[in-house]
Simulated scan of single mutants.
Amino acid sequence: MRIKQIETIRIESQPQIIWVQIHTDTGIIGLGETFYAPQVVEAAVHDWFGPLLIGREPGAIERHWEAMFRLSDHAGYGGAEMRAISAIDMALWDIKGQAVDLPIYELLGGAVRKKIPAYVNDLPYEGAGEKARYYLDQGFTAMKGGPTIALAQATDGQSLTPKELDMALKPIRDIRDAVGMDMQIANDGHGKWTLPVAIRIAQAMEPYEIMWQEDLMPPLNPDALARLQAATKTPVCISERLLTRWQLRHFIENGSAHIVMPDLIWTGGISETHKLAILASAHQVPIAPHDATGPVNIFACAQILMNAPNGMIMEHVPSMYKGWYNEVVDPNVDIHDGFLHAPERPGIGTRLKAGLRDRSDAIV
């Protein structure tokens, strides 16, 4: 089997998403996906990495990953190159799974589970208690939101008044008043705050038994994040902003990452996320992959989480899952009763819908 063609597909209705399809001479097509600045990713796929892959055997995934990474890391790895590698890697794993008629998690060593808890990225400032009741009735037991994010704008995250901090606690109090401890709550800070403010936020939320504090600060300094973790009993979760094992390892090894949140479609695809899960497991740290992007990412994360013993929980955005995901893939992700369920189809587990590439707003 040889790689015959690599194509990228974008649609105007989802301007940050790009899909990569790798065609083989046997007719098998592998699917990958990434998010953000898709025009730049498109150039990386076609101009840089495509020539390394065309005519090659797709099953040599590790060799291809290393070849792409070495081509780009001399200028500092990351950015569009890493996103392109991620999408290509997903597509290569998809081809391998289809070729042997197995889901990818079976190729990673088999399943340790067939479902994993999913949490909802949907925590409004107003009506958070009612929203918590709604999701509990559907079987979900964890929610995430960012009530401090907007408050950082006035001072660029340099200060937070007592009144503003109390405002940020309002939706969290509403959930506790409505459903008690039945709903877990994760707080996302979007990397907006300085260390002193981050410590204040984390400590102020401690009485509410927060599931984790995610990106209260930019993950630029492992020592600063370790100081944050030392100042709070709440686990610090780090971070989709860090790419590959080489960036994340500093935060895992110094104890600042009590939960690791890789973004599979940014950090190097299935190959690298699998390695990150193993690295985290060596430090007895769980993984909770990031998602607020596209459906193929969740399928790929499901492959990792069904195989990784230290898989904790999976993020999803209900409005996207119930909305535009249904327009672009078939089947959609299987999330119900509070769990993400294992894909059962060969490869990554889904396909772009027939006709997507022929839409009037498609750019192929």
Rank of each mutant, 00 (worst) to 15 (best):
V112K: 07
A152M: 10
A128R: 05
H23Q: 08
G109K: 02
K131F: 01
S256K: 01
N121R: 11
H283Y: 15
W93I: 04
N310S: 07
G110I: 11
P147W: 06
I304T: 02
P162V: 07
P196W: 03
Y105V: 03
I335A: 08
L136K: 12
G157F: 06
S86M: 00
D215M: 07
G145F: 11
K170N: 10
V20I: 15
R70N: 07
G110M: 11
H190I: 05
M143F: 12
I199D: 04
Q14Y: 10
A150K: 15
I116E: 01
W48F: 15
S360D: 14
D182N: 14
H258Y: 08
L243H: 08
S319Y: 13
K131E: 09
C237I: 07
I335L: 12
E272Q: 11
A37G: 02
I265T: 11
L102M: 15
E253F: 04
A99I: 12
A44E: 13
E130L: 14
I104Q: 06
W19Y: 15
L92Q: 11
E344T: 12
I85L: 13
L151Q: 09
A300R: 10
P309N: 05
L195A: 01
G50V: 02
G129T: 02
G349R: 03
M143W: 13
D122M: 14
S72R: 10
V364P: 04
G255Y: 04
L220I: 03
T234S: 09
P262T: 00
L92S: 09
H336K: 14
W246Y: 12
I287G: 02
P343L: 08
P295F: 01
H23W: 12
R56P: 01
K96M: 14
Q184H: 12
N307L: 02
T194K: 00
D89G: 08
Y325T: 03
D182Q: 15
A288T: 08
N310C: 03
K96F: 11
T194Q: 00
G79M: 06
W65M: 00
A152F: 11
E42N: 14
Q98D: 07
D215F: 03
E130Y: 06
Y105K: 03
P117Y: 07
G59D: 15
D47W: 13
G157A: 06
A178N: 10
K353S: 01
G323H: 15
T350R: 03
E214T: 11
G78K: 01
M143T: 06
I172N: 07
A230P: 02
Y321W: 15
P51T: 00
A111I: 05
L52T: 00
K163L: 11
D330N: 15
A99P: 10
D263S: 09
G157Y: 07
I363E: 11
T161C: 08
G338C: 10
G145Y: 09
E62T: 01
Q158Y: 04
A288S: 13
L71E: 13
S72N: 11
E240A: 08
P196G: 01
Q14D: 06
G145C: 11
L108S: 05
L356T: 03
D47V: 03
D361K: 13
A292P: 01
L356S: 04
